Computed example of a mutant assay.
Amino acid sequence: MSSTRRTAIVAGVLFLVTEVAAIGGLALYRPLLHDADYVLGPGADTQVFLGALCEFVLALAVTGTGAVLYPILRRCNEGAAVGYVCGRLLEAAVILVGIISVLSVVTLRARTDGAADADAASLVTAGQALVAFHDWTFLFGPNFVLGANTLILAGLMYRSRLVPRAIAVLGLVGGTLICASATAVLFGIYEQVSVAGSLAALPVFAWEVTLAVRLLAKGFDADTGSDLGARDGAAVAAV
């Protein structure tokens, strides 16, 4: 198996992991994100911890896609490849900040036992502030930054024909829509988690799943992959 084919397989697996982990994290966080008085109730801390673990896996997988694809992408455009890696690192960093804000709410909930009414009210306010902080990280990480990263990767794959152009076009559409949707949420046109927001996210979800399946099943385009492999061989020989 060639190194290019191995890269395609690893990248495909990582893209699938990002989708599963992202959906799992969002679903497991629901009790905390949608209950304004979570810090005063019995809580679903174990579920939230599992959600945090999913998002931590998501951050690792996001970073991994950038690192794994860099050797391939740099042969197409080194500057854009570096930009993609940096963008994925930024996306992962924002996700990690969101995890910390959610776990901080759990810590506050553990301190409500025996709290006076005035203290309880302060804890509720603090908890809501931390949830709002998470919502903003969710907007800028898996929306704005994800959209920008998608546009870079899809653009590189469209120009280099690493995958069929129909797949790359799906990525270009998905990246554009998710950025436009994030802008709409930023200006209060609709909520982040809403029908409109979900519909806008579908193309980028379809892009990542389609790309993952393509990379796992067939790898990069045969002609392009061979050409890239030949370039690598020539570079090694020159050194």
Rank of each mutant, 00 (worst) to 15 (best):
V169H: 04
L139G: 01
A196C: 11
A116T: 15
A201R: 06
L53H: 08
G87V: 04
A116M: 09
V82F: 09
A237R: 14
R111Y: 09
H34T: 13
G43C: 13
A81G: 12
Q47L: 15
A212I: 08
L156T: 00
V82A: 09
I152G: 01
N149H: 06
S3N: 11
L96A: 14
T46E: 12
G229I: 02
L32H: 00
L156Q: 00
A11T: 05
C76M: 13
A81I: 05
A184S: 14
G225V: 05
V145A: 03
I167S: 01
L26A: 15
L60M: 13
G141E: 02
A235E: 13
P164F: 06
V236H: 09
I178P: 01
A234Q: 14
A27E: 04
G127C: 04
E191K: 12
I72H: 00
V68A: 01
F49E: 15
T107M: 13
A180W: 11
V209A: 14
A116P: 14
T18C: 10
F220D: 00
L228H: 02
I23N: 12
R5L: 05
L162I: 03
T65S: 09
S198F: 15
V213E: 00
I152Y: 00
R165A: 03
A36S: 15
E208F: 14
L33N: 08
A116E: 15
L89R: 05
A126C: 11
R111F: 02
A206M: 07
T112H: 06
G79I: 10
V209L: 12
A93L: 14
Q47K: 05
P71S: 04
A222W: 03
D35W: 09
V20M: 10
R75L: 11
M157C: 12
L53P: 05
V57Y: 08
I100N: 10
T4S: 12
S101R: 09
F133W: 13
V57T: 14
M1F: 01
H34L: 12
T183N: 08
P164N: 11
R30S: 14
I189C: 08
I178N: 03
L73H: 05
H34S: 11
L216P: 00
G229Q: 11
A230G: 11
T4V: 15
A222Y: 06
A235Y: 07
V10Q: 02
A110Q: 14
D117I: 05
F187E: 10
N143L: 12
N149S: 11
G51A: 10
A168F: 01
L58M: 14
G98M: 07
D117G: 06
L123V: 09
G175C: 07
R111M: 15
L89K: 04
L139S: 00
A148G: 10
G83V: 08
V39Q: 03
N149I: 07
R231E: 10
A59T: 03
T112R: 06
T224W: 02
V20K: 07
S160I: 00
Q47W: 03
L50N: 02
A132H: 13
G25Y: 04
V10G: 00
D135A: 13
L58E: 06
V97Q: 08
P71H: 10
L89G: 03
A80Y: 09
A200K: 00
T183C: 08
A217H: 07
G43E: 09
V10S: 05
L170P: 01
T107A: 15
T176E: 12
